[in-house]
Write a protein that binds this DNA or RNA. Structure first.
Lengths: 238, 238
DNA sequence: TTGGAAGTTTGTGCTGGCTCAAAGACCCGG
DNA sequence: CCGGGTCTTTGAGCCAGCACAAACTTCCAA
């Protein structure tokens, strides 16, 4: 399942880490210095849990590098991925939702570098730092929108369309252009995709094989490259 | 489709309307007076749209009486109900999500009485009124939780379980105890239920007929009474 | 009271995607 | 270079739930 590889405060975190992250981008250099000095940095290996559903929300996090899956576990043990979070976003912000426990579990999809702060600092950040609250609520709003879309998708679309959409979302969020297409730049298994789209890994596998034959995608183990995004868009809307 | 029946400010709204609604419950009487004097009250008949997806969020609303369905329309014209909102909650609070358009359409499920304020007052309410922001974010948090649950439900459960769950949620939110069970106290059609559970009205109809034969529920046109909630809970978890 | 609209029930087939099953490909440690 | 773990592919059969269709009930307006 993976575990924490290191937990320490690096000698000195560089201000440039945060200057371009929306919730902090309007701040002065010395403010960022203060915030960084209050942060703990930590590295998680792929598959490690950053925080878990239901536990007291003691810290909030900023994902500096990597990708995180936000999942919930059903009573019968199935995992459902509610959301993918790319680098540069806050997570575990239970406080912004008036909650004191985490509403879901966050799992790093690849190796991840994360800053975190004790939740008691949350209110003072909101009070003291211009734009922090606003930007945070934009993030929340954006995620609500995403969730809404997922509900509509699950409710009305066929499996093939859902998988196509999931792929498109992933390359938008985390795609890296390569010579002959766009590659998802973190390891993703058929199983992961099936959890994102509420189907089985078998069906995902069949679909990808089919698309590969048509030249839409190319995939190796844990790697997917989309060669013809436009065709996928068409598929997704059919 | 229904239309607005009346739009006017009543001679004088009574303070007691708001004193027990969470976002306002911590306020002084004269504060509530001010807020009420800034409000417009309006009645919508069943099926009328209070606001619509994508339009500029010019006002925010408090549902005083009635029930509201929050729906999204797919490109192909199907409706999907994302959420049900009971009386006593704010709605159309795009601002709290950092948005300037409404993310979904709100339709009154029964006759509804609604107060509304111009969105430009939002920031001052947040700034001036103790607890307003906090309570609002709790509402948002709660809705995020609900949406999460719906995603998990859609992703993992069978139609029968989803319909059972939807019924249970409805009686929890809006149930009224009667002699031999709990009745959903606003008009709801099979069609509505099918939109809530992402299935067809046919399937819902069959399920309800079946349950009626087993004595679990009783239903007439637009009315559903649950006689044995516990059995439904069991069904929902099977 | 009558006609129409809205909502509901029920039947009959069909099929998308699931389950079950088994084997093949790749990856890493020893 | 072998062996076990992880990931992927493919096949076969089946069934829950959908599409389509038609009749019935209730409500309401004229």
């Amino acid at each position: 399942m993976g575990s924490v590889l290191s937990q320490k405060t690096f000698p000195r975190l560089d201000e440039s880490l945060l200057t371009h992250m929306p919730p902090f981008s309007r701040l002065e250099k010395n403010q960022i210095r203060t915030i960084l000095d209050q942060a703990t940095s930590r590295r998680y290996e792929a598959g490690a849990a950053i925080f878990e559903e239901g536990l007291p929300a003691e810290r909030f996090y900023m994902l500096l590098d990597g990708y995180v899956r936000v999942v919930r576990i059903t009573p019968t043990g199935e995992q459902v991925t509610a959301l993918h979070i790319p680098a540069g976003q806050l997570l575990g912000i239970a406080r912004a939702l008036g909650r004191d426990t985490y509403p879901a579990t966050a799992i790093s999809a690849s190796e991840a570098i994360v800053l975190s702060w004790p939740m008691r600092l949350w209110d003072s950040y909101v009070a003291d730092y211009d734009g922090f609250a606003t930007e945070t609520y934009k993030t929340v709003g954006h995620r609500v929108g995403e969730m809404n879309n997922r509900i509509v998708e699950l409710a009305t679309q066929q499996v093939e369309q859902r998988v196509a959409n999931a792929l498109l979302r992933l390359i938008n969020q985390t795609g890296r252009k390569v010579s002959d297409g766009i590659e998802i730049d973190f390891p993703i298994t058929r199983q992961d995709l099936s959890e994102l789209t509420a189907t089985t890994l078998h069906t995902v596998s069949r679909l990808l094989s089919g698309w590969e034959k048509q030249g839409l995608v190319e995939s190796k183990r844990k790697r997917i490259k989309v060669r013809d995004p436009h065709a996928l868009v068409v598929l997704a809307q059919t």
